Amino acid sequence: MTRRPFVVIALLAVLAGGASACSSGSGGPGASPSASFDSERALSIGRRFAQCARDHGYPAFPDPVVQDGNLAWPGEVPDLKDQIRTIMEQQPECKAIMDESMSLGDPHRDTTPSAQDMEKLRAFAKCMRDQGIEGFPDPKPDGTFPLVGTPLEQEGKSERVLTAIDACKHLYDKKIAIS
């Protein structure tokens, strides 16, 4: 069985869809799960999301597993990230389940970003604004972007947001999180 790279559930909630938003890495070599990540709760949320997806027209949507400290969906599911995004956009009850994951944290995220990473995060935020995402905030001292409860969170991964993310991801190539 071939294993695909999987998405951390907290990142799926980034901009209401998480995929991995701006993520291209998995926390890097030697990353270890943080004490604040609750893998049992993540697995429970992931299973509820999978059932919601199956109940709403995705009968083959797989149940998740915890793999290397990440919530992952095993198997070869074509366009899994797109399916998750579509489900969250079209099914508010499924999105509400996934939104619970925001409190879990990222199992590979250091609690305090380095000064260099903070500089990169600020450059990423400025780039997002330069790309037309008005009001995209600078990161908080913990490295998270305060988007919860904002119109940007509600907008989710619209085409304009995805285009901006694509244009800015070269500035910060690690996972991002929202608060």
Rank of each mutant, 00 (worst) to 15 (best):
D68H: 14
A31N: 06
M1F: 15
V7D: 00
A96N: 10
C22T: 14
R41W: 04
L15S: 11
E89Y: 08
S36F: 12
A115Y: 05
T111N: 09
A60K: 15
L12N: 11
P137I: 03
G69Y: 04
T2V: 11
D68E: 15
G105W: 02
P141C: 07
C52H: 02
P92M: 07
F61M: 10
Q90E: 11
S23Y: 01
S23P: 02
A125P: 03
G18K: 00
P141A: 05
R47H: 08
E89S: 14
S32E: 15
L121I: 07
G27R: 01
A96T: 11
S20G: 15
P5F: 00
D79M: 11
L12T: 13
P137R: 08
M98Y: 03
D99M: 10
G143A: 10
S26K: 13
R3N: 10
A10K: 11
K81L: 06
A60R: 14
F124A: 06
P92Q: 09
I97N: 01
D106H: 13
S24A: 11
V65N: 05
C94E: 05
P29S: 13
I97W: 01
P146N: 12
R3C: 05
E100F: 06
L121P: 01
V65Q: 10
S36T: 15
P139A: 03
R48F: 08
T144F: 00
G132Q: 12
G105C: 09
P59Y: 06
T112K: 12
Q67G: 01
G105K: 04
A123I: 04
I87Q: 02
K95D: 13
G28L: 06
S23E: 07
A42Y: 01
A42Q: 01
D63M: 09
N70V: 00
V14C: 06
P78C: 06
R122N: 09
M102E: 10
A19P: 04
A60G: 12
K140G: 03
T2F: 05
G135P: 03
D55I: 12
A35R: 14
P29E: 13
